[in-house]
Each structure stands twice: as structure tokens, then as C-alpha cells.
Design a protein around this nucleic acid. Structure first.
Lengths: 336, 336
DNA sequence: TGTCTCTCCGTGAGCGCTCACGTGAGCGGT
DNA sequence: ACCGCTCACGTGAGCGCTCACGGAGAGACA
């Protein structure tokens, strides 16, 4: 696919065609003063006719403003990310920044690729990154870089931390308080290959342990991060443990899929099996019964990240960036 | 908010610090040949230490490749758009293009603003635009511009047409065939202020008329384009026409809200009232009963738009762009 | 010793634009 | 006639980089 671009029309060509100088054309285009209205019109008409459009590169080169941030997410189709994106877009717009979006699908190869690309193309990066090589690469360079979920990583890398530990604890203790003991977990399979630390699965193991509830590994089912993935995992779970009374899901998407499938298989929710999600997606309100979940303020998450990027861009060093934590809130609806 | 950027480190500064020439630094940075490995390492180390990062503007100025397209959507939070975005991102990535995202909220002021911005910042635009002034402005300039829903507009403006007429007809006739006569419509209120033509509302009026079913204007309720908006509109509708037997919604979001509220008010779906959506969002499968809808291949829509933008960028004139139509498909689930 | 190749490196030009000037014409005031 | 001013416009420089060269030095071979 040879995208043979048509040659660029330059400001000089417009100038020549109109019989004026570069500068006069520039004045016309940028709506500046010191130009005769009649001349402006002539120039503008010629520019229009010739298909002239100023080169953003030449412009950007001389005017050192206009900032572009790269937003790296796993998957636009996962409703979690649009909410974060909304926060990022809004905060960026307030600052007059542009936002370029990249999808990684949580694949290691793509994450690395995207990080590489970022270095060339943007002034700052704001990213969800799963694989620690990608994170290392991203934070090693000279590009201001903010992690949208820095997890348990060293404080030196700027970013927002989502307090999964607090959230998971609140959620699981809620389930335990309600009398549940046979609590399964549906984990995101993407974390199997990533050497992340302090994952929701580990927290699950930890909290359960603290409450003296032993869990066998097959109480943890990996699921693709989607509704269908949750459904499939639930089915596997049920065939191994029909007596499960509650499911703690990696996130709402998986929880919703699981709950849907459970109901399709004849279970009553929450009487036979309760479901607890994580993320607080608005689609959790659509299912029956509405999903109880640990709500994360995703919009705020995006905003904070942009603010941190702004500080970095302003020259603040990475370890001066204030610590930011998002606290998941238990939202009790009806599924648990 | 004075984002006092730290002064840029240039290639010359790195060159000076390392005691080599610009070109050698360039060779090191871009991983080219004709450079001693030892020198490369020294340069790279210095660059890293000095916080050097090549200016994308200077680069872009000399290498005329690297293309950026602007994607203009109404609202990232509306699940319709992420799907389109996914298609756009994918198609853009295949071409090595970047995608900058802009939100308009369907407001006239913001649409105009965004279009203005686009002209400065991108090489091509791909957009959902509601207000015809914004569309006029966008297509008048020299920027390759593709409409993601060109509606009934002149063929000269490139873009994808979604065959709402065919879709609406298929949907409404399905309802009529099933015996419905008192069919209400829940319209998107944003279209009240926009002078769009060939809207879903007009099609509703037309098809109903063709079947000899007279409709009073208060069978059409405007709704905010959201689930809550649909719910509120449904409540208004019911207070005027408790005897409605079917609802044709502007889109799935509104349909879902309406259906949810109807059920909350004690109506059985579809026995007492049937619901028909438009868009084919995947969240329509989550509600009970699953939503019958006119499915639009949103991903494909995004892809086609990018392909058209590529043709435009390649120098093809606007009227040579092949006509592209997306045909909505009736997906019968259980709500109607 | 000459010269031929190969490796490594530097130099000038130019991408398209804006900024800070400089300039000349026109005009009113004294 | 002179000054001073405004208005409209042009000129040179430079933003930071890459590309196409050109050239020095080292080693190989006659």
C-alpha cells in the first residue's frame, strides 16, 4: 500500500503565487495584524485554492509550545479504559494538550513496541503497562512517564497507585462477614505471564489466609479479561466446585460474565452464589441482580495521571512527585 | 497554570558534550551504521545523562512521513464510540499512523472548536459531526476529511453512510408484523438543535405513515443520549401513553434505560411493551431480556473511514472516493 | 612508495515555518 | 521643509534535525 502522498504546498509557493512575501502569508493565515484586509483575502483565497495547509512540524519547531501526551491502554473495548480516557482527555484539554491513544491488548510484544514508539512521538506518556520490561523501558528513558497503575512498584517511578489491597480486603471481609467460606477467585489470565507483584490474586490468598480459610489453587480460575472469559471460567469453576458460595472476580467484566453464566446454569444470585466485582463499571448496574463491586474512580485516575505528567514536564524530578492513591469503595448492590 | 517547560536539550549540545559532530550523534540515536560501537555507547550514555530526546518536530520536518489522524467522537463513555475507535486504531496502526482523539459531547461550540484545532494538528480528520456548520467548516478546508456518518449529505463529502433508512424500516416493520400499532419513539435530544436531515425520527414518521399508522408528536420523546436519559424519557412517555406496546429507540443506550425503567415500573418485557434498539452494543446482551436491536458494524465503520482518509491523503479527489454504506442488521434477541 | 579500499566521522544545505527586526510610503502638524 | 508617526510589508536568522556528500586515516597489496 504505497501511500504516495501528494507533495506539500509550502508557504513560499503561496507567497510567490500571490506576489507577496512569506511573512505576509503567515500573517494572513494566523490572523495577525499588520496586514491589509484586502491582501489577507487574496492570500487566503490563493491558499485555499492551492490546497495549502501549514506544516505542523515547521510550526512546532519554532513555537515550542503544543504538547502531546501518549495514552497507553490495554483495550478500548473494555469499558474500564474509556472512563480513564475520559479523565485523561478532559485534563489534557484543560491544558491545551493533545492525546494520542495506543492499544496494547496487554501483550508484551505490543507494549514494548508502543513504548518505543512513544519516545519518538510524544512529550509525555501516561500508561497502563503490565509487563515489567515495558515499564522498565518506559521509565528508563528521558520521557516523562506516568503509570496509571503503578502497583507495588518502587516509589521513584511516578504514577497513581490503586489500593487493591485495601479494596480486596474490604470486599473479601464483606463476603466473609456475610458467612461465606467457600469463596472462589476468577483471575485475569494476562497476569499469569506478567511478573507483576501484589496482584489481586495474591491479595486474595493473603486475606483468606488471615481469616483462617484455606484455599486450594483450583479455587482460582484464570479468565480472559472479558465477559465471555468470565463465563467460561465460571463454568470451569462450577465443574470443579459446585459448592462455591461466592465469587471474587478480578474485575467487573469477568464478574458479569460469571454471574450471567451461573444464572444460565440455574444458580440463584446471590442466594446460591454471590458475586463481587472490581472496578465499578456502570454496566454492572444493568445485569440482574446489579453487581456488587469495589468501585474505582477511573476518571479521577486519568486526571491525576495527567497532573503528574504536567509536573514532570514542568521539570519536577520523579521522586518529588507526590504519592497518589485511589481507594476502591465497596458499592453494595444486589449480587453479594 | 504556567507549565514552565525545561529548556530542550538539542542534538548539538550532546555532540559538543561528547566531542563529536551532530551527525555522529544522529547516527547513534537512530541506530545507523558508519559509527564505531565505542563511540555510539559514549554518545548514548551522554544523551541519556543529559536527558536528550530528539524533537519530533525537527524530525517530522525533514522526514515527510509519519502521519497523524484526528478522530473526533461525541463521547468516549458512550460504548458506541469505543467500538468505532477500535476499528480506527487498528486500521491506523496497520498503516503506521497515529491517532489523536477529541471529544465533542455533540455540542456545537465544541465541534467547531475541535474542527479548528484539527486543521493545525493533524494530517487528516475522521469525525462524527452533528452540526452542519462544523461539517461545512471541516469539509471546506484543505484537510482530508472523512465523515463517520455522512447521513444524507451531498456525495461530494467523503465518508461512510450508515443506512438508517433500511435499518429503521427493517426494525419498524418487524414490530408492525408482530402486531404492534402503538409504537413510540425515544429520540436523541441532541438532534433537536442540530439541523440534520434524514434522521431516525423522520424515518420513524415516514415508515409509520407508509403503514397507515398515524402518530402524534407526543409519541416521540426526546431523551438524553444515555441510559439515564432513556429511563427518564420512558417515564415521561408512560405518563402520557400508558398503552404503548412497543418502543423504537434512537439507540441501544436509550433503549436499555427505557426498558430498565419500564420493568422497574412493573411492565413485562416484551409482553406489555417491546423494546427495539439501534447500534447493536454488546451491553444489550446483558440486560433482561436481552435487547433486540439493529446492529451496526462499528469496527468496520472505523476501518472504512481510515481507508478513505488514506485515499484522500494519497491525492484522490473527494468525488472519486467510492461510496461506502454500512447496513444495519436486525438482531432479534428477546426484548421485541 | 604509491594507490585503493574500507571505516569512521564531519560539513553544508535545507525541511517550512515564525520572530525580531528593518524599510519605505503616506500623512498630519509645525 | 522637516520631523514624527502609523501602516503595510519584506528580510535574515534560526528552530532541531536528517540527507547527501566529502575527507582523513588505517590497512592491504602491488
Amino acid at each position: 500500500m504505497p501511500t504516495n502522498r501528494k507533495p506539500r504546498v509550502t508557504i513560499d509557493q503561496v507567497a510567490q503565487a500571490t506576489g507577496v512575501s512569506r511573512q505576509t502569508v503567515s500573517r494572513a493565515i494566523n490572523n495577525k495584524s499588520e496586514i491589509d484586509p484586502e491582501t489577507r483575502r487574496r492570500v487566503l483565497d490563493a491558499a485555499q485554492a492551492m490546497g495549502y495547509r501549514p506544516s505542523r512540524f515547521a510550526r512546532g519547531l519554532v513555537r515550542q509550545d503544543l504538547i502531546t501526551v501518549g495514552l497507553v491502554i490495554a483495550d478500548v473495548l473494555n469499558p474500564f479504559f474509556p472512563e480513564v480516557t475520559a479523565g485523561v482527555l478532559e485534563a489534557a484539554e484543560r491544558r491545551g494538550w493533545q492525546v494520542v491513544v495506543y492499544n496494547t491488548g496487554s501483550e508484551r510484544r505490543k507494549e514494548l513496541e508502543v513504548v518505543d514508539m512513544l519516545f519518538d512521538q510524544v512529550d509525555a506518556g501516561v500508561a497502563f503497562l503490565l509487563h515489567h520490561e515495558a515499564i522498565a523501558k518506559a521509565t528508563a528513558g528521558n520521557l516523562p512517564f506516568v503509570l496509571l497503575d503503578k502497583g507495588g512498584r518502587a516509589p521513584a517511578v511516578p504514577g497513581v497507585r490503586i489500593d487493591f489491597e485495601g479494596g480486596a480486603r474490604r470486599g473479601l471481609e464483606y463476603l466473609i462477614d456475610r458467612g461465606h467460606r467457600r469463596i472462589a477467585m476468577l483471575d485475569d489470565e494476562a497476569y499469569l505471564s506478567a511478573e507483576a507483584q501484589n496482584t489481586r490474586r495474591e491479595l486474595y490468598l493473603k486475606v483468606m489466609g488471615e481469616h483462617g480459610i484455606p484455599v486450594d489453587v483450583d479455587w482460582i480460575q484464570p479468565a480472559h479479561n472479558s465477559i465471555d472469559g468470565g463465563a467460561a471460567a465460571m463454568e470451569r469453576l462450577l465443574s470443579a466446585h459446585r459448592d462455591v458460595t461466592a465469587v471474587f472476580a478480578y474485575n467487573d467484566l469477568i464478574a458479569i460474565g460469571a454471574q450471567l453464566r451461573a444464572r444460565a446454569l440455574g444458580l440463584r444470585v446471590p442466594e446460591d452464589c454471590a458475586f463481587l466485582g472490581f472496578d465499578g463499571l456502570s454496566i454492572g448496574e444493568l445485569v440482574e441482580p446489579p453487581l456488587t463491586t469495589l468501585h474505582i474512580d477511573k476518571r479521577r485516575l486519568g486526571e491525576i495521571a495527567v497532573e503528574q505528567a504536567a509536573l514532570l514536564l514542568g521539570g519536577m524530578s520523579e521522586d518529588e512527585i507526590p504519592e497518589a492513591v485511589i481507594e476502591p469503595q465497596l458499592v453494595v448492590r444486589a449480587s453479594a
